[in-house]
């Protein structure tokens, strides 16, 4: 059947089989492969995207269920500059192999959106639908806390807003600078 789904702001009208999963629509029909599939039982969260603003596992949504909806994937986050959460993930080394990372970041963005001062326990609890096998989560938790902090201009650690929008190269330069002093 015909569906129309807005992915990262652009509408895609496609003929799909009813059984087409949203994740397959994104990966195959739209051609965005940043959203990964790591399991078949709705556990791992690698496929997490935002469906009408809510984090969902796109392996457990049919494309026909998302007909008319707006979907945002990992590819939508960086807009010339990295999103604060992406920035935090690289700075805190919140990824190793990178396979779970897209889903992890998409979940994290929603987790902290309304909780800039989120506590470590709540981050850990909030990530229960995302599995990572490399990092032991320690640096992911740090990254999410850092990302949360940067989201909110009113947080106790208020930062220069420009800090939210530095490039990766610049962040690296700063990190090197920091390690030299």
């Amino acid at each position: 059947m015909e569906v129309s789904i807005k992915v990262n702001g652009k509408s895609y009208e496609r003929e799909v089989e009813p059984r087409t999963l949203l994740v397959d629509f994104i990966r195959e029909d739209v051609g965005l492969t940043g959203t990964n599939v790591g399991c078949d039982t709705t556990q791992c969260g690698a496929c997490t995207v935002h469906l009408d603003g809510a984090a969902v596992k796109s392996c457990t949504v049919l494309a026909v269920q998302a007909d008319g909806a707006s979907v945002n994937t990992i590819e939508s986050l960086a807009n010339g500059e990295l999103h604060a959460m992406q920035q935090a993930f690289t700075e805190k080394h919140g990824l190793q192999c990178g396979f779970c990372t897209s889903g992890m970041i998409m979940t994290a963005v929603k987790l902290v959106e309304s909780h800039p001062d989120i506590e470590e326990d709540d981050i850990r609890h909030g990530l229960e639908g995302n599995l990572c096998r490399c990092t032991g989560y320690e640096n992911i938790v740090r990254a999410v806390a850092e990302g949360a902090r940067r989201f909110d201009p009113h947080s106790p650690w208020e930062m220069d807003p420009a800090e939210h929008k530095i490039t990766l190269r610049e962040a690296e330069r700063r990190a090197r600078e920091r390690s030299r002093t």
Binding site: L51, A55, T60, V61, K110, G126, G129
Partner: peptide
């Protein structure tokens, strides 16, 4: 119930 993404659906 479940996890945040599951609760959203």
């Amino acid at each position: 119930i479940g996890d945040p993404q599951v609760r959203n659906r």
